[in-house]
Design a protein around this nucleic acid. Sequence first.
DNA 1: AACGAGGTCAACCGCGCTTAC
DNA 2: GGTAAGCGCGGTTGACCTCGT
Length: 177
Amino acid sequence: MRKPCREKMTEMTKGAWSIEEDKKLIDYIQKHGEGCWNSLPKAAGLRRCGKSCRLRWINYLRPDLKRGSFGEDEEDLIIRLHTLLGNRWSLIAGRLPGRTDNEIKNYWNSHLKKKLLNMSTLHPNKPREINRPPNNKLGKDFNDMDDEVSSADYAGIGVSSCLGPELNLDLTLSIIS
DNA sequence: AACGAGGTCAACCGCGCTTAC
DNA sequence: GGTAAGCGCGGTTGACCTCGT
């Protein structure tokens, strides 16, 4: 079995990143690009595991990140995508330029979950028919989603009604490809 | 001003998929 | 085809912040 990175690198730093560490990581990636994460820490002079570097870069240091609160349009898009895709945060993040999966996941768990829960109490009628994309190219079987309460159920709205035709087609194409 | 509860968000953990050998 | 290593993802944790009392 594969060893977790913490076992093979016991001297690794953990916890919050310092300004110096951030600078080293940024400098290295600006010079060499996002190459091999596993060898990056050593090459960049960081006492972190590759995973940690990757996470820090993707979720915080990347220059194209859009910081700040979510707009109403973004919020709406997240709800719609979550209805269709479930907890596939990376796929959802792919539809929101400048946003990360971690950011969306946090926002969902802290804001949108509650919001939709409130909406469900206002609209108790639960629709049962959900249009799902073909079950391929996705890590998790869509049948598993039966175990999860979808946001459409929370919101009392059906997917077909809440997804625009362009998004539906676009998503289907991206899933098939 | 002090304290506790609840909220937020960066970071870690472990699993599964992909790729190289 | 089997195995090991790398990578990416989703779930979870915990430190810090904010707000109400």
